[in-house]
Write a protein that binds this DNA or RNA. Structure first.
Lengths: 153, 153
DNA sequence: CCCATTTGCTTGACAACATGAAACATTCAG
DNA sequence: CTGAATGTTTCATGTTGTCAAGCAAATGGG
């Protein structure tokens, strides 16, 4: 039984090392992703936060509060970010006819174009993924989904 | 040949969709990772940047300039972050005997303890990974390595 | 050896991001 | 109709980030 216990411990230790390795790899990916996202945004004179908001609004117009929820920050913070985007003509505030308290932020034509170009310029993850076969990418997709508790998609 | 071309186009489109799906999943992971990292840091009254620097210095003491390189920011920025960590007794600046221009930042005993607790409290990526078999984690590790251009490790 | 240059760090001015409290208008519930 | 809750903004404050300027120390060509 001593041998079995030793084996079990060795397996546990190897497991922990493997997990730590994967966690470190994920940390590297997070770092690279941010780096490239900021750089891509900077090409259009945008900060990372501005680019994220613009990307959100290019999908669909959103009330200020919803933007804050997506960004996981306080609504008062969104005011300034949208201010700066609006000052550059990339976004506009519209009144919500259903609730006059609400201001709906929407991408302008120019804003939608910028968001499109920015998105297609995001080489990270897309370019390295090109080196993986379709089967491997499916495997990766399934593993990532399970990590995010999205078993079905 | 029209049929073959159509098939090729269909495959390309499916490939692009798959890639976009994986990219979106990675974006989700990046978002979750950040969220949890900030929350874990906040438990110790630290910001994300402070926690990152403390984690670096818990591994080994570093000159200010090296910290800036790891953080991918200007050295002048590191001054403030280390100032705040030092004010709380988590980090200290030491002179470098080999080069008197250099200030080496090092985690104090308290800083190392905080870094340890913080790291072990990082549930994300570690907890979801527990649901994956060792074989799956190895597969994930290899796929992530290839994404990062680290074929061998 | 000496001086110009480079290197490492800090300081100061400034902008963006982030929070929390307070103000305001509007909506909603009793 | 009144009081509570909601959506947004403003203000004060702190952290992060950049860049330019400054100082101390190291380095290398004359």
């Amino acid at each position: 039984m001593a041998a079995r216990t030793d084996t079990a411990h060795a397996t546990e230790a190897a497991d922990a090392a493997l997990t730590r390795e994967v966690v470190d790899l994920i940390a590297s990916i997070v770092s690279r992703y941010h780096e490239e996202y900021e750089a891509a945004a900077a090409q259009y004179g945008l900060t990372g936060a501005q680019a994220r908001v613009l990307a959100l609004l290019a999908r669909e117009p959103l009330p200020m509060r919803r933007i804050a929820e997506q960004l996981k920050c306080e609504p008062s913070n969104v005011t300034g970010i949208v201010d700066r985007l609006e000052a550059r003509g990339l976004v506009e505030r519209r009144p919500d006819p259903a609730d006059r308290r609400v201001k709906v932020a929407a991408a302008t034509e120019a804003g939608a174009q910028t968001a499109d170009r920015l998105r297609s310029g995001l080489t990270f993850a897309r370019e390295p993924l090109a080196g993986l076969s379709a089967q491997e990418r499916r495997a990766l997709r399934d593993l990532l989904r399970r990590m995010l508790d999205m078993p079905a998609g």
